[in-house]
């Protein structure tokens, strides 16, 4: 009896929590595919920071997230992580405005599993970007 209850609780936790976590972020294409529903709703948007798109100070920052097909321009006034860099991944949380600009209240860097040892003459990619 006790075991059955505990198993049921575990099952509930597993399926409800894991189920909700299945989609952590939408790609720009997926977000715009929602049509009218895409606007005004708080969502997470993930993609690569388009090279050359990042400009402005940390407290008034603009950059473009792309999935290769669709671009969405993002604006944020919260300080982004130091590792936010062009060409690398980022996930932002916020709302898509009617002007198709995304106002982010949180910016998170998503890095991949590739690690690189420094070699002579090599510079980190975020240092290599002029002006950032």
């Amino acid at each position: 009896m006790g075991v059955a209850i505990i198993a049921a609780v575990i099952g509930y936790l597993a399926f409800s929590e894991v189920g909700k976590a299945l989609v952590y972020y939408l790609t720009p294409t997926e977000l715009l595919a929602k049509g009218e529903a895409a606007f005004g709703e708080t969502v997470r948007l993930g993609g690569l920071v388009k090279p050359g798109s990042k400009h402005g100070p940390d407290t008034n920052l603009w950059f473009t997230l792309t999935d290769g097909t669709t671009d969405i321009q993002v604006h944020t006034s919260v300080a982004p992580p130091a590792l936010l860099k062009e060409g690398a991944g980022a996930v932002v949380e916020g709302r898509l405005g009617v002007n198709h600009g995304f106002e982010a209240t949180q910016v998170v860097v998503k890095h991949d599993e590739n690690y690189v040892a420094p070699t002579n003459g090599a510079v980190p990619s975020h240092v290599a970007q002029p002006g950032s």
């Binding site: 929590e17 976590a21 992580p81 590792l83 910016v107 998170v108």
Partner: peptide, 20 residues
């Protein structure tokens, strides 16, 4: 925290299933 910019994200599957 220094790399992603946050300590924790509940909605991430790896983090959520590990907490579970």
């Amino acid at each position: 925290r220094p790399v992603w910019g946050v300590f924790w994200q509940w909605e991430d599957p790896r983090l959520t299933t590990t907490a579970l």
